[in-house]
Design a protein around this nucleic acid. Sequence first.
DNA 1: GTCTATATCTGGATAGAC
DNA 2: GTCTATCCAGATATAGAC
Lengths: 179, 179
Amino acid sequence: MPRKPVARDAVLDAYESLLIEVGERAATLDAVAKRAGVSKGGLLYHFPNKEALISALLERLDELAQEDIEQMKAAPDGSAAYFIRSSLWADTPMDRAFVAATRLAEVAHEETRRRFAGIQQQWLDVLAEDVGPEIAKAVSYMGDGLYFNAMFEGGQGTGDASREADVEILLGVLDRLRK
Amino acid sequence: MPRKPVARDAVLDAYESLLIEVGERAATLDAVAKRAGVSKGGLLYHFPNKEALISALLERLDELAQEDIEQMKAAPDGSAAYFIRSSLWADTPMDRAFVAATRLAEVAHEETRRRFAGIQQQWLDVLAEDVGPEIAKAVSYMGDGLYFNAMFEGGQGTGDASREADVEILLGVLDRLRK
DNA sequence: GTCTATATCTGGATAGAC
DNA sequence: GTCTATCCAGATATAGAC
């Protein structure tokens, strides 16, 4: 099994962090290299160009999303409740990869959008098994709304208790809909 | 009453369109000038720098948002239903200004984010009058989720009937919650 | 594998002619 | 008011030394 070099991962982590913290525009190769503690040349050895960096990020996102879907399916109180709870920023590897990728999608990166659509659809399918197709839509949109709102407010959704309260409210709404 | 020059509006329209269609990154002064049919120098006569362009866009957004809030309050079947319906991309002046501004918010433009938060809060207040604070949250998030999803999929949410069906579903869910 | 130096290009902005 | 010409900074990417 070929082990990936650590420097490569460090670069990818740095790129991800910068996308989250300062946005796509400021996540330059210079900034990424500096954050990762390598030179620009060093960075470009691992990722020949910026697209390669993006591709690697999307690969990572897909892997983490698959794991997340499994977790969701196995959630004891149902995938819908799991989904709503996980729509809160928790700084997990999945959250980080997802938000980072979102920054790219906004910049009209088509490949990124396609990936999102795929993940989205899988979520919806799992939700439909739990609560049926209609409520699945409602849950899916609520979760997305929560997610995007949290993203907007402070770069990294810095610990605001109000969103957590909102999660409780949405879980309450879900219960009402289940009946 | 001082009439604003048409060229100025043309420039602003061009900037808005480009933000929607190609994203923040590609909405350069060059591109905006070309789209508006003026030279870069001509553009910079009306807007001395890019920030001025952004400010003007946010002003426009605020004006349109205030009008929208009034419409929402006056909606015959309640503000919640109005809100859900208006979360679909309809290529209205309001939609255009909103989505364009979203592109900036993603790029971590703080002023833009503040404006969004303000509008968001006003919507929530109006919704709460209609359906109470809890359901207001649910409706708000569903609407936002719908909005962002539509935004993501094709630059301008090019006429897909499936989202319209989703609106009907969400209206149905709203009815169930109202009881 | 990683670094330095450098080439190339593009975007934002200024200066001044018309 | 609008244009052309130009400057400057910063971003991507290449070349080649170590």
